[in-house]
Write a protein that binds this DNA or RNA. Structure first.
Length: 567
RNA sequence: CGGGGUGUAGCUCAGUAUGGUUAGAGUACCUGGUUUGGGACCAGGGGGCCGAAGGUUCGAGUCCUUUCACCCCGACCA
């Protein structure tokens, strides 16, 4: 492609609404343009990157036996009613009616559609397993789209669905998909981590997220310093502490503790480690038809992890409660303790089971209990893992320490089980001629988000640094002075040679100055830029490596060979 | 969905407190010339329903009302 003919509108300044590097550079370098909140046009460069990612996904999916399909983007609302997700998704579903007044939904994900496609067509265990996928635009009317391609309302996703006769077979496929996804991300040149995730409201028995490591990631993940363990903080587990602070010695007693409403104040006034205090977080948990106040207890040194809390209560939502609401049931914030089980529902963190020498609220204004042995609750109370892991906590699988890092969720694989096949009555006949719901898995990968993730992980202050697998063009030939015939001649020759060799090459033949074209090359982020300029009089050209930002001096006669080597 | 902010040229923004010739700059774009190793310079030029609708006024980018859009923080997010 000749730069003079290419539609690549680069700009010196970023749109004022962009904050993330990927957003700024993709906009400035002429990859994307915003249409409305969370809606973007892909210009030629972006389209090329997307195709490359899609090709790699297609190759790896084919390699593991998945088959590509393409389902209608417009989906009948009836299907969403059948699965019950028309309520669950709520306003995220963009709904509209056709001329016959039928209600439709723009597909945000396609479990229902895929199950509908397969049910009554695959009816025997002999035809299982089956793995179907598509790469397609999705639409979710998100409350707050942001960060450019990272969280758009319209986005491109690879979504795959597998159908099995047994859970063992699902487990096998799940592992195969994890391996395939890892291969895809490795081929794209990304530094990533597979982490355990919350399987949450969707249900199912397991889920993993593929996280591209980048400071700007929206997710916090806990990773082990020694082993492969990694988990989204929403699902991260830990071992019992190995180093335990010295326990305070005290008989069970009630103590006057005026104005001691925080863990910090409590720990200070008794001179104990917060480890020996009990923190109460009162929340209102919301169910489908009702809601109630639930008291969550964790150690003073821990915090409540709301997603875990949600799972422990099997609630739809958790919201804050006011002091007035607590007062109505006789609870005083700052002095709430777990010993009265009758005032409200309790959920106590597993780390508090059998905890001794504890200090906790006495459920009485200005009083705390000391020397509490929570062992007395071990048979009557409800314990669950509800605490958020802290940096420095012990890995659940080895003796390494957990540390936090930020990740961009680019893939999510799920063992769905029979949630959708039961809801949509999608069944097959097993060996005994008995009808069974399909056991399903679902595997998503955010293609447009990957475009952003590559830039988030690979950029500098001057622009994008595409990996070899994702670059829109591998080589940019920059003719420094278009009026210099020797430079033009060599540029044209190399351009022709590379094109013949099938290299994706851009020829910057614009009548611009060196600095302008160089800045542009860095902004767009071609892996290699051949600079044909002032060194040519000495018989040399330079190769600028975008990833390392080093310039390599190469004899002009060897440049074609050198480039072919580098690729 | 709560809280905050911003809408003026393709882009980045002045101008709005205190209404008053023909609405500005930089950049980008077009023409000509000079320049040619890090987003050059000179000269000329095209480009605006000042987000939209209503109102106040002799007069509105500026004041009032309504509304729409976009951004940020939070809640939410297979």
């Amino acid at each position: 492609m000749r730069r003079t003919k290419a539609f690549i509108p680069t700009t010196k300044e970023a749109p004022n609404d962009a904050s993330l590097p990927s957003h700024i550079f993709l906009a400035r370098a002429g990859f994307i343009s915003q249409v409305a909140a969370g809606l973007y046009n892909y210009m030629p460069l972006a389209k090329r990157v997307i195709k490359k990612i899609e090709n790699i996904i297609n190759e790896e999916m084919t390699a593991v036996g998945a088959q590509e399909v393409e389902l209608s983007f417009v989906t009948p609302a009836d299907l969403w009613a059948e699965s019950g997700r028309i309520e669950k998704f709520g306003k995220e579903l963009l709904r509209f009616k056709d001329r016959k007044n039928n209600l439709f939904v723009l597909g945000p994900t396609h479990e229902e559609m895929m199950v509908d496609l397969v049910r009554n067509r695959v009816t025997s265990y002999k035809n299982l397993p089956l793995n179907l996928y598509q790469i397609k635009t999705k639409f979710r009317d998100e409350a707050r789209p942001r960060f450019g391609l990272m969280r758009g309302r319209e986005f491109i996703m690879k979504d795959g669905y597998s159908f099995h006769a047994t859970t063992a077979d699902l487990d096998r496929e799940f592992d195969a998909m994890e391996a395939a996804y890892k291969k895809i991300l490795a081929r794209l040149g990304l530094d990533f981590r597979v982490v355990e995730a919350d399987s949450g409201a969707i249900g199912g028995s397991g889920s993993k997220e593929l996280m591209v490591l980048a400071d700007s990631g929206e997710d916090t993940i806990a990773v082990c310093s020694k082993c492969e363990y990694g988990a989204n903080i929403e699902a991260a587990k830990r071992s019992k502490r190995k180093v335990i602070p010295e326990a305070p010695e005290a008989e069970f007693n009630k103590f006057l503790t005026p104005d001691t409403k925080t863990i910090e104040a409590l720990a200070t006034s008794f001179n104990v480690d917060p480890y020996y205090t009990v923190k109460c977080i009162a929340k209102r948990v919301v169910y489908e038809d009702e809601s109630e106040i639930v008291l969550f207890f964790v150690r003073g040194c821990d915090n409540l992890q709301e997603v875990k809390a949600l799972n422990a209560t099997e609630a739809l939502d958790i919201v804050d409660v006011t002091e007035e609401e607590l007062a109505e049931i006789g609870l005083i914030p700052g002095f709430i303790g777990p010993l009265d089980q009758d005032k409200a529902k309790h959920v106590i963190d597993v780390d508090l089971k059998d905890a001794a020498n504890m200090i906790c609220g006495a459920n009485e204004q200005d009083y705390h209990f000391i020397g509490v042995d929570l062992g007395i609750l071990s048979d009557v109370a409800y314990f669950a893992d509800i605490a958020e892991v802290n940096e420095g906590d012990i890995c659940p699988h080895c003796d390494g320490e957990l540390s936090f890092t930020k990740g961009i969720e680019v893939g999510h694989i799920f063992k769905l089980g029979t949630t959708y096949s039961e809801a949509l009555k999608a069944e097959f006949l097993d060996e005994n001629g008995k009808a069974q719901p399909f056991i399903m898995g679902t595997y998503g990968m955010g293609v447009s988000r990957l475009v952003a993730a590559v830039v988030e992980q690979h950029h500098d202050e001057n622009g994008c640094k595409w990996t070899k697998a994702t670059a829109p063009y591998m080589v940019n030939i920059m003719i420094s002075n278009i009026k210099d015939e020797a430079q033009v001649e060599l540029g044209e020759k190399l351009y022709g040679q590379l094109q013949e060799s099938g290299v994706e090459v851009m020829l910057d033949d614009r009548k611009e100055r060196f600095g302008f074209k160089m800045k542009d090359a860095e902004l767009i982020g071609f892996p290699y830029t051949v600079i044909i300029g002032k060194e040519l009089v000495n018989g040399s050209v330079q190769v600028y490596d975008r990833m390392t930002t080093e310039k390599l001096l190469v004899p002009a006669d060897d440049i074609y060979t050198k480039i072919m080597e580098l690729l």
